[in-house]
């Protein structure tokens, strides 16, 4: 075993273990609890989770009620194609949003060309990865990947 242990620090309180990479790469015997499911956009009962960080400021901003009307309509729509009965509500939403171009207009990220080119490809992969890592997804705008995002 390529493993070295030393007791160090005040009173020898700190155990320092240096191990060979191959030892660390071996399967672990420790078992962790399953992480709790992170709530996504749709609640277990099928309703919309308006507190989902994935909505950004959509549900809380100045056109929040219009957005909620439109999106609720879409979510519960049984028309074919889905949402085709919601045109009016979306028009109302759009009308509201057009009053706030700096809020609902172009993204502040200036790397737009790049983003546009890669957006569709990313979208496809994101759908897949989001299914397996919803919590990371939910807080994607956090200033650090694992931190929660306030502006989502």
């Amino acid at each position: 075993m390529s493993l070295r242990e030393e007791w160090t620090g005040p009173g020898g309180k700190d155990l320092l273990v240096v191990a060979a990479p191959e030892v660390l790469a071996a399967p672990s015997r420790a078992i962790l609890p399953e992480p709790p499911p992170a709530p996504g956009l749709v609640n277990a009962d099928g309703s919309i989770n308006w507190g989902c960080p994935c909505l950004g400021g959509m549900a809380t901003g100045p056109c929040g009620t219009q957005f909620r009307d439109a999106f609720s309509c879409f979510h519960y729509s049984e028309a074919d194609p889905k949402g085709s009965d919601c045109y009016e509500k979306f028009s109302v939403m759009q009308e509201c949003m057009s009053q706030y171009p700096d809020l609902y207009g172009k993204d502040e990220d200036e790397d737009e060309d790049v983003a546009e080119a890669t957006a569709s490809a990313e979208l496809a992969t994101s759908v897949a990865s989001a299914a397996s890592a919803p919590s990371a997804q939910a807080d994607a705008e956090a200033p650090r990947p694992a931190a929660a995002a306030a502006n989502n």
Partner: peptide, 10 residues
């Protein structure tokens, strides 16, 4: 334009 930040964070 897609949501860059959300997508990027996936």
């Amino acid at each position: 334009t897609s949501n860059q930040t959300v997508l990027a964070g996936a």
